[in-house]
Structures are given as C-alpha cells and as structure tokens.
C-alpha cells in the first residue's frame, strides 16, 4: 500500500468538500453577497455618487467591497475547519499539507469569484452602466487570487488565536495593499476604456505579486499548521 495520497487527489477532495458544503447551505456566500450589497449602498449615500464622480470611484468601490466581503468568507471558511476539530482531521490524513492549503485557497477563490460575478452585474444595473470587459474579468481573477493566497494563510493563523474574531483584517489588509493598488489601477483603466496594452504594467505587476505571495504562502503553510 502506498503511504501518501496523491497531491491532486487530496487537493480536489478538499475543494469538493468545501464546494458541496457551501452550495448546500449557502450561508457564507449569501452573507458575502448581502454584505457586498450593503457596502455599495453605504458608499452610495456616503459619497453622493453622481455620475461624474462615480466613474472615477467605481474601481475603488468594487475592490473595497470585494476585500471586505472576502474577509467574511475567509473567516467562515476556516471557522468551519476549527468548529468540530476538522483541521485535525485533515492533518491526520496522509496528505501533503500544501494540498490542504491549495484546496482551501481554490475553494476561497471560487467563492470570491462567485461574489464578484453577482456583484458586478448588480452594480451595472444599479448605476445603469456596462462594466463588463474581458480585461476586467482578468483583473478580478488575478486580484482575487493574490488576495486569497495571502488570506488563506493568514486566516489559518488568526483562527488559532484567542482574538480570532478581530485579527484577520488587521493581519491581512496591510500586507495585501500592493495587490489592491495594482488591481484598482488596472480595473480603473479598463473601466475608462483604456486598451490592454496600456495597462500591461499593472497586469504584469498583479501576476508578479500573485506568484510571489502564492509561493511564499506555499512555503510557510507547513509552519502554520504543524505543531
């Protein structure tokens, strides 16, 4: 009998488990969605979003909304593992710890993308603009990947702390700022109708950050879960 379950099998098992559990109850997704909608409404009143100022602010609003609702999802996703001791259950299995990390990251990524996929059309309807462009889709994909790469690592630390309810955003936000800057800039560019070639700097930057953050998280994740 081989001793270790293959990396890919373990990873897909973790992703499958998270998706099945979430798509049944939809507790986390609906919370993320409602929260995101509330943030947009609060912005609307707080900033008096008339059409002129709005165009300049849309990119920022989208990413602030995604960032905030993302922490809800990350916290919840790790709390599920901690609730009935399931994290121990994962660690007891003969699988690579990094398979667990990537499994959780991919599931979190999917949840963020689902939130974005609903949020953006709603925003378009509310403000009667068309946000869709393939460039924007790419930015959302890259930006949220960097976000969940760091977020999954840090949430698996914060969940093991006594102050777990308040810690995640404090740990995550200062570290994730470079990704957010690049994502906001690229999003703003695409919304303003700039061409892809004029925004390549930001796209490359996003790709670079994603690679750096993902590989560092991948290298240190062991240290976060192994006692």
């Amino acid at each position: 009998m081989k001793s270790k379950t293959s990396f890919f099998k373990a990873l897909s098992a973790v992703v499958w488990k998270d998706l099945v559990a979430e798509l049944r109850g939809k507790e986390m997704l609906s919370a993320m969605m409602v929260f995101a909608l509330l943030v947009i409404f609060i912005f609307n009143f707080a900033l008096e979003l008339d059409p002129k100022t709005r165009n300049a602010l849309t990119a920022g609003i989208i990413w602030v909304t995604l960032t905030f609702s993302g922490t809800l999802g990350l916290n919840r996703s790790m709390a599920v593992e901690k609730d009935r001791g399931c994290l121990d259950g994962l660690l007891l299995a003969p699988v690579d710890r990094t398979a667990i990390y990537f499994g959780k990251s991919i599931a979190n990524w999917v949840f963020m993308l689902i939130t974005a996929a609903i949020l953006l059309p709603v925003y378009s309807i509310l403000y009667n603009t068309n946000l869709f462009s393939w460039g924007l889709v790419l930015v959302i994909l890259l930006g949220s990947e960097g976000y969940v790469a760091v977020g999954t690592l840090l949430s698996s630390m914060s969940i093991q702390a006594r102050t777990r309810d308040i810690l995640l955003p404090i740990l995550l936000f200062p570290v994730i700022i470079p990704v957010l800057i690049a994502a906001v800039k690229a999003t703003g560019g695409f919304l303003a109708g700039e061409t892809f070639s004029s925004l390549t700097t930001w796209i490359y930057l996003l790709i670079g950050y994603d690679v750096i953050f993902t590989s560092v998280a991948f290298m240190v994740f062991d240290a976060v879960v192994e006692e």
């Binding site: 099945v20 599920v80 001791g85 399931c86 259950g89 299995a93 003969p94």
Partner: peptide, 24 residues
C-alpha cells in the same frame, strides 16, 4: 477525539466519502 472531526454541512455519507478520498 472528543470532537467528532466531522463537517456539519455534509451528510454522513459525504463525510465518510471525503475522508476515504483523503486516505486513498
């Protein structure tokens, strides 16, 4: 352990199936 190490939002069968996959 004294905690069940099971996922509340999965059925009995799905829980076992998940762990069976992890153990190959």
């Amino acid at each position: 352990s004294h905690q069940p190490l099971l996922y509340g939002d999965l059925s009995a069968e799905e829980n076992l199936n998940f762990y069976a996959k992890l153990y190959g």
